[in-house]
Design a protein around this nucleic acid. Structure first.
Lengths: 179, 179
DNA sequence: GTCTATAGCCGGATAGAC
DNA sequence: GTCTATCCGGCTATAGAC
């Protein structure tokens, strides 16, 4: 059984797993049909007997990564813990993080529910307030992607910036009276 | 005089301007030496008399866009106005926004101070608190890039999510007592 | 389901004439 | 500073034999 689990043929699971490794190690650009074939000990054209095109393989890797991330986040209870787990995954697997969170999502190629499942832990953590969930997600994604892209100054204290942001989002109601 | 201003030869300014248009209209991938030459009525190899390689051209476009964005932001007084201007620029020039805010920055090819100048309006708006500046930037960038990438559900009320986030960041001190 | 061969396209960049 | 000619490399994908 491959990591992907489902009832597909063993071979397709191996292909997706190999593609995941290629991306994890070298980024999206490292996923080429030739490299993928080589890793599996077959020639690139043979892959087309299992997948219609490269996009289909990539979509399966995205689904895999989404489930992977979701399973990490499920363990977290508080919003702070959630943020820690989120950042940790991104730093451990920057290329996979980018793949699943940047650029257009091939939604029509993704198994239903995968996207929602990845979002669920956060939605729950903010008590179902979707505006807050989206704002926190934007903050977390922004922090992570700017860090991965090296956009913060080398001497920036990112832990401190995270704390500042999380503190701002932590106090939900408790508004004094004005607008 | 080209938009770039500086004392470079007229031709190099025209090249950068043309490259800016190419990216603005078709994204980073649309900037190819051939397309750039065609737009200027010359052949691609001729460009190498003005720039060492494609990366140098791209870096100048980034500098140009950074200054463009900075000049839009300078006009804004409040943090809310700043956020509006930021989002407006990103939605008007999504490809340029991506170019200057995603992926690694070729800092060694950028004129000194350009990056800081773009950040200055925000730093000022949060009273020089760098943690807060970084957190707000992450939030704003996250909102913008997730919107550009179509990651929010079609029915999501993004104005509302922005308000939620900005409200959270608006109240700086005023902490009751506990941790 | 794997292979070989190859079509087809696009890209950055260089050499050398004018 | 512009040109033509060209090299070199990369990629996805197909055709057809086994």
């Amino acid at each position: 059984m491959s990591v992907t689990g489902a009832g597909v043929s063993e071979r397709t699971g191996q292909i997706v797993d190999a593609a995941r490794v290629l991306i994890d190690e070298g980024g999206s650009a490292a996923l080429t049909m030739r490299a993928l074939g080589e890793r599996l000990g077959i020639r690139a054209p043979s892959l087309y007997k299992h997948f219609p095109d490269k996009g289909a393989v990539e979509a399966q890797v995205i689904a895999l990564a989404l489930r992977e991330l979701a399973s990490e986040l499920e363990r977290a209870g508080s919003l702070d813990a959630l943020a820690s787990a989120y950042r940790a995954y991104a730093l451990e697997h920057p290329h996979l993080y980018r793949l699943m969170n940047s650029g257009p999502l091939p939604r029509h190629l993704l198994p239903a529910g995968v996207e929602d499942a990845a979002a669920l832990p956060l939605v729950r953590a903010v008590g179902g307030d979707m505006d807050r969930a989206r704002a926190v997600w934007a903050f977390a994604h922004g922090m992570v992607i700017l860090e991965l892209d090296g956009r913060f100054p080398p001497d920036a204290d990112l832990d401190s910036a995270w704390r500042t942001g999380l503190k701002a989002f932590a106090v939900p109601a408790r508004r004094r009276s004005g607008a």
